[in-house]
Design a protein around this nucleic acid. Structure first.
Length: 491
RNA sequence: GGCGCCAUGGUCUAACGGUUAGGACACGGCUCUUUCAAGGCCGCGGCGGGGGUUCAACUCCCCCUGGCGCUACCA
């Protein structure tokens, strides 16, 4: 295969979404698989919708996922500039060529006239499209209007008969009738090109070999092909992956969970899990496998494996997959990634002491396997950090309100405070010893004890929990629980 | 309205035209267990409808229905 060149061509008009980033994932995987170059090109031709922060978000998203680009913003490259707003001379020159060839023409219609025309067409249930009012203006007329400074756009002159077809790797041959394509705008009156034009020009100038972009572009692809033909250029290979929708088959929105891609980073998804999920959402290697390492994805990814139907984003499955990755991840990494969440929740100071760090690490280790997203860590471990326990009401009723509990906890507190070997084994032995003395099963001792030291009915193994909390904390907590219980009796 | 794309359980997906239609998430049950997870086992649940072609159709063709996209001087 020739050197492949793929591009990710986002518009900086807002926070990048799941769908945007997934096409970047496919671009990157394809590039990694075959070599060549992954180009990032910023399509900032819509000055009205430009959002300055979106470029940073875009690049941060790619960096977070580990999708390094070979050419584009920050890294430059031989085919730059990579911002369309800096490439205006290219478009200008080429649009003039089309006009001279008779493949494009100036149009002076006002947006008001166009709106009325469209309205009439809709009312008459006719296909909408430009009525070519300006197609046959004389050269002199055009020159005089331009000289007067009347705002003009340049339109492509679409052939009125015949068909335009192209091959889509994902869907096969797709054909459109030319007469149903209207004379679309190439150059806007502000001098900026439209997407349709700039995109084709840049893909050609940058020698892009494969265009991977969302299905929403299928309808405009014949227009692009027509432009390639007008210039005598060879179109690249097209691949249109399916769109991603929310659970109700509508566009992904806040109701379906996070929309902005970086929100997933914020919530504590691991990049490897995101990469895995995003790739397999709408792609398969033809087997049952759905857990793939980064290297496996690179090795196995093919454009042909992309499915051709819309897919629905399933947060539950993503969370499951993230849990799989968290469990498999190195504890050191998970600890490091969890610390900010504890700090944000006010459970850990911004500059923890070594002792606090060690304590936090031991606590995170106990809950690691239960995390679906890293941000869960705060809720899961808060009782380790807050001595003022929030008692689970049902748990109190079930485990602490029995008559024998104060005796039980009293014995336990004495033995634990006297314990010299505060290890998991030592604690285990003490708890069971108390159980024997009280003639109770392990569970009957363990549940009230967990309530007394954590306030909760669920948590890590009790002995591990007690050991991690440490002798002083545990004894103090049991004492307070006893005080609370006696107050309750008085009250 | 026009044009285009698409159609396997709720969701993501697999299946040379010949399989009891497989796997995963979710859900339910059991098990393991000091709780919660994780794990193991079991279960629930599917080829949108109608015509063809064929000895044989989830698979190929047509129609219908449904979903989605496009129909801008937005991308």
């Amino acid at each position: 295969m020739e050197k492949i060149r793929v591009r990710f061509a986002p518009s900086p008009t807002g926070s990048p979404h799941i769908g945007n980033i997934r096409t970047a994932v496919y671009d990157w995987l394809f590039r990694q698989r075959h070599g060549g170059s992954f180009v990032v090109r910023i399509e900032d031709t819509d000055r009205a919708r430009f959002v300055p922060t979106s470029l940073d978000e875009l690049l941060d998203s790619l960096r977070w996922l580990g999708l390094q680009w070979d050419e584009g913003p920050e890294v430059g490259g031989e085919y730059g500039p990579y911002f369309q707003s800096e490439r205006l001379t290219h478009y200008d020159k080429l649009v003039k060529q089309l006009i001279e060839q008779g493949d494009a023409y100036y149009c002076f219609c006002t947006s008001e006239r166009l709106a009325e025309m469209r309205k009439a067409q809709e009312a008459a249930k006719q296909p909408t499209g430009y009525d070519r009012a300006c197609v046959s203006c004389s050269k002199e007329d055009v020159q005089s209007k331009l000289a007067q400074g009347i705002p003009a756009v340049v339109r492509f002159k679409v052939p009125q008969d015949g068909n335009t077809s192209f091959h889509d790797v994902v869907r096969g041959e797709i054909t459109f009738e030319n007469r149903l394509l209207d004379d679309f705008v190439l150059l806007k009156s502000d001098g900026f090109p439209t997407y349709q034009f700039a995109n084709v020009v840049d893909d050609h100038l940058m020698e892009i070999t494969h265009i991977i972009r969302g299905e929403e572009w299928i309808s405009s692809t014949p227009k692009h092909v027509l432009i390639y033909q007008a210039f005598g250029w060879t179109p690249p290979v097209f691949a249109h992956p399916p769109l991603i929708f929310g659970s109700d088959r509508t566009k992904l929105s806040k109701r379906h969970g996070a929309v902005a891609f970086l929100d997933y980073k914020e919530r504590g998804f691991l990049p490897e899990a995101m990469l895995n999920y995003l790739t397999t959402l709408g792609w398969s290697d033809g087997t049952d496998q759905e857990l793939f390492s980064r290297d496996e994805l690179i090795e196995k990814f093919t454009l042909e494996g992309i499915v051709n139907h819309p897919v629905i984003f399933d947060m539950q499955k993503l969370e499951w997959m993230n849990g799989v990755y968290i469990r498999a991840a190195d504890i050191g990494l998970i600890t490091e990634l969890c610390l900010p969440y504890l700090q944000k929740a006010g459970l850990l100071p911004a500059n923890p002491t070594p002792a606090e760090m060690e304590y936090a690490s031991s606590v995170i280790a106990l809950e690691k396997d239960k995390l679906k997203v890293l941000s869960d860590v705060a809720e899961l471990t808060s009782f380790f950090f807050q001595d003022e326990l929030e008692f689970d009401e049902k748990g109190v009723g079930k485990w602490l309100s029995k008559e024998h509990v104060p005796t039980l906890l009293g014995k336990l507190m004495d033995k634990l405070s006297a314990l010299t070997d505060f290890s998991i084994e030592g604690i285990d032995a003490v708890v069971r010893e108390v159980g024997e003395e009280m003639e109770m099963s392990g569970g009957q001792v363990i549940h009230p004890t967990r309530m007394a030291v954590t306030g909760r009915t669920v948590g890590p193994g009790l002995f591990e929990t007690i050991s991690a909390l440490g002798q002083a904390r545990v004894v103090a907590r049991i004492k307070r629980t006893l005080e609370m219980l006696s107050e309750m009796q008085v009250g």
